[in-house]
Amino acid sequence: MQKMNKTILGYVPEESPLYRIHPFVRLLFLMVVSLFPMFISSPEWNFGIILLVLAILVYSRVNLKTLRVYIPLSISMGVLILLTHTVLGGRHPEFFVAFRIFDFPFYYERIVAAVDVYARILPMIFVMVLFLSTSRERDILVAFRWARIPFVVTYLGAMALRSVGMVIEDFSIVRQAEKARGFDPQGKSIRYKMRQFVMYIIPLFALALRRSDEFANAIVARGYSFTGLKGVDRADYILHQYEFRTRDAVLSGIIFLSLIAVLVARYGFGYLSLDDSLTVQLLESLLKGGAQ
């Protein structure tokens, strides 16, 4: 049976070629490529980023079926953006009315703006999904530590990540305990649920306090000091296991260069803008027809 690595959003085969790449490079990809849509207005280029991410997911042997959960999210987000730009976008006599529904005008400019915003947000989400689908908590820590982020900061970050799971688990325990004693807000009104929510929050809060107390004991009992120990050069055994190779340096360089290329193309030559976008031209011919 194929051995799998549990990542933050799922499972990836241990043999995935992505694990040959240093975690820092993967973090760099997230941080840099998720910035691209901020500089790219042309929707087709942004959809190109999505295709690139999908290709990397396939290469990384991530089961693409797991991405199905994001389809309703993407659709509802698209509908919401469209509605806020059109129905809730206000009246603009200066804009071109593409069509009317129940005499309500839908402006061409607002539709283009909605498509622009949607096409920028979607690739950012895809890049984040790629990173979280292929990274373990440990990879994130290694990436930050390799970037010389102080151990105490990465450690606190790791604890924050871990505490999310613990709070969810504790919440489930509290809820079951309350249910076992006849407290079940299922089927009750939202107002009732909100009023009774305190029944969950108080024990959850008490549990969180106890856990933090236990945690403090645990790290003190194993000699950890947040300010570092006097005269002790702390080895980072886990980081030591990851080697930053030439390939990683090349990939990092490519990522940086691609950012520079995007910036130069956008602000130096005026490419990647809405003006020369094929998607906008298509929308124009669909919604404006021959009208000017």
Partner: peptide
């Protein structure tokens, strides 16, 4: 205090220097 068993086992040793 750690994300994997290995990290957990080495945590104290790292603290010891």
């Amino acid at each position: 205090t750690a994300m994997t068993v290995e990290d957990e086992v080495v945590f104290g040793m790292e603290n010891m220097g």
